[in-house]
Amino acid sequence: MECNVAIIGMHDYLDGDLPREEAQQLQAHLRSCPSCMARFEQLERTEALLYNALEHAPAIPAYDQAASAKLTERIMSQLPKEKITRQNRRGALRYLYKYPGLAVAALFVVVMLGSFISMWQQDSKLVISGEGEVLQQVVIEGKKVTIPEGVHVKGNLIVENGEADVRGEVEGNVTVIDGSLNLASTGYITGQQRTIDQALDWFWFKVTQSFSGLAS
């Protein structure tokens, strides 16, 4: 056995960590190597001194029973009187802590609702949209959109916040939002005619419109 291996073995032995077989090899080496034997004896003595000095250390001055009791008192008096635990938090807040997704969803709904309502209320002006040909032939008087008698238009017409008066022929859809649709006896609409005045309908219409817009 090499001396450096033996030295590691000595420490392991003192740690109570050396297998029996290796301990026997170490013993054999120590018998034949005086310098390792000397070192081992020193280490053994150091170990004994350390245990003796630390484990059975003399009492620390001025740390007697009274001092110990005083420290205990100091520790106990410094503790917070009432522990703030999770249970003390207010109900709703705790709910949000527990389900962060819920908080996000709630916030989303609030924001969406807000912008939706403001968008809906904003649109009180008359808006007409439709294909070019249609727009050229309609007559606008205040909030009234008229398709004059005898006129034949091709295309869709959308009127927002106004009254549509159809006297001529429309070859397409006519949609009125927040207003009324008046179809004269001379008027004729080949496509669908719809009147929307409910928020939800309006919203749904906007959505389908933007989607069909994307598709086309």
């Binding site: 003192l14 280490l43 150091t46 001194l49 350390l50």
Partner: peptide, 8 residues
């Protein structure tokens, strides 16, 4: 341990 051995 070895450090203390040398010191002592």
């Amino acid at each position: 341990r070895d450090f203390l051995r040398k010191k002592l």
